[in-house]
Every structure is written in structure tokens, then in C-alpha cells.
Simulated scan of single mutants.
Amino acid sequence: MASDFGKEIGADGLLAAASVLERPGEEFVNDSMIEELWAIKAFEHAEIYFNLLSSVDPKILRLTKLDDQIYKHFREVFAEMNVVSVTEDQLKSAEAKECWRPFCEAYKESVDDYNYATLIRLDSSKEYSEANSIIVPRVQFLAIELARSREGHNDSIRVNFKPKKLQSRS
């Protein structure tokens, strides 16, 4: 995914890009460089998160200080959602967006980068891959992953996968 792009621009380039990406989204037009930088950051987050799942009991993993609130709210709004395996349609269809938008906006002031592009695995029993990942807002990722961890759907990760050495981006 992020492969050679991060190596091409180096550590200084990535640091400069990170500061640019902190600016309001309204300032940007569809710029392929910006999109690629977002993809690199989302991929790096996915690598780190999956290594955590591979190393730590998911039931004790804390993702934010609001984990309990996010999980409770998620299950109130999406009581019937089976988080073992989700589809793009469940997360991004017009109908789904009508439910997800107010859920996500509820965390606009309380969750840092609540709307940040974050990769989520569609099937919780598998690792991140192009076929098993889509980009969602960070709070949507948090809600689903908190449910997966608390409900035992991430338990098999430590058994079936070992932590990987993270690739140096410099």
C-alpha cells in the first residue's frame, strides 16, 4: 500500500506532510499527493493497530479515554450490527451514512481526529489487505473495533498472527 512512496520523500518530507495534513480539509482540492499522504498515514495506523492486536489481549486494550462511552453508544444505535464481518454497504451506503453521520458527529469535540481517514478490516478474523480493508472515519473504526474486542471477535488475532516488524519510513 504505502510501499515505496514513503521512502521516496523521506522522514523530512513525511514530517512536512504531517503538518500540512493537520490543516482544515476545506483548504484542499483533490490533490493526488495529499490523497497519497493520507493513505500512508492510514496504512501506518493500521500496521500499528494490528501489531497491538497481535500482542495484547484485545479485551484490555484501550483505544481512547472514551472507550466505554463510544461502545455503549454504538450498541444503542447499532444494536443488531454483526461486527464479525462488515460490508462497505453497511458503512458507506446512503442509508448507512444517515445513521453513521450523527453518531460520528457526536464525537466531534471529544475524540481527537474523530473524522480522520482510518483503515478498518472488513472481516475481523483476517489481517489488513487491499481486499479486506476500507477507509472510514476514525470514530467509526473505534466503535466497530471496540465492539469486536469487547465481544471476543478479535481474540483469534493473537493466535493466528504474530506482530510484524514495522517498516522504517525514513
Score class of each variant (00 low, 15 high):
K65W: 09
A46Q: 03
E80W: 08
P137S: 12
K72L: 11
F43Q: 13
E127V: 06
I157E: 05
E151P: 08
E35P: 09
L61G: 02
K165N: 08
S124A: 08
E145W: 01
W100L: 00
S85E: 15
A79W: 10
E109V: 07
L119G: 04
Q90R: 01
S32W: 05
Q69F: 15
S85I: 15
E151M: 02
I48D: 11
S32E: 13
E98D: 10
K162F: 08
I120A: 01
V84N: 15
L146R: 06
S133W: 04
R23N: 11
E80I: 09
K59R: 08
G25V: 14
F43G: 08
P24M: 01
G152R: 01
L15Y: 11
K126D: 13
E80F: 01
S55M: 00
L119W: 06
D31K: 03
E130N: 14
K108H: 11
S19T: 15
P58I: 05
P58L: 05
L21R: 00
N154D: 13
K126S: 08
E88D: 15
A16V: 12
V159W: 15
E44Y: 08
D31E: 08
S125K: 07
E145P: 04
E98T: 12
E145S: 07
V159C: 12
E8K: 14
A79Q: 12
H153D: 09
Q140K: 05
F50G: 02
V139C: 05
E35S: 11
S85R: 15
Q69I: 15
A143T: 07
L166W: 02
F43P: 00
H45S: 11
D113T: 00
I34D: 01
V86I: 03
E145Y: 00
N30H: 13
N51H: 03
V83E: 10
S125L: 06
E151V: 00
S54F: 05
Y128H: 06
D57F: 04
G10C: 01
E27C: 06
K7E: 10
I144V: 12
E127W: 10
A79Y: 15
Q140A: 12
S170E: 13
V86M: 04
A46Y: 06
E26M: 12
A106W: 09
E130S: 13
F141H: 03
K72N: 12
E35G: 08
E130D: 14
N132V: 04
S125G: 09
L146V: 06
D155H: 02
V86P: 04
N154G: 05
G6P: 12
M1Q: 13
A143G: 10
K92T: 15
L52W: 07
A42I: 07
S156D: 13
T87N: 07
L146P: 04
S168V: 13
F103R: 04
L119C: 04
V139F: 02
S93F: 03
V56F: 02
E98P: 05
Q167G: 13
S110T: 14
